[in-house]
Amino acid sequence: MSLEEQVMLFIMIVFPLYLLSFTLYIIRAIKGPTIPDTVLAIDALSFDIAAFLALLSILYRSPILISCAVVLALWVYALDIYVSKYFEARDMGD
């Protein structure tokens, strides 16, 4: 078995485990009792999806696709900041 086939087989084995953990994160994001639970679940889900997209670009043999992972990891952080700024401003009476 060459190195290429071995790496492809490894990624194929890892793939369903990632799908399972994404499903669990999505369940928590959808049914989270309060808003911070949902935002925290989206945060963790998106950072894991950024790692998963890098894995997919090896699987599809097109390294150009990696640039989306940088953008996703940068912009999901902005959602955190917006939501927490909304809550803090409401608490301070501003």
């Binding site: 997209l53 997919l56 599809y60 097109s62 150009i64 696709l65 640039s67 989306c68 953008v71 996703l72 912009w75 999901v76 902005a78 959602l79």
Partner: peptide, 18 residues
């Protein structure tokens, strides 16, 4: 992304999430 359109993803994420 999965449908192989990374240029659309680069614009869609900042607009829709940011």
């Amino acid at each position: 992304y999965v449908l192989m359109a990374p240029d659309i993803v680069l614009v869609y994420i900042p607009v829709s999430v940011g």
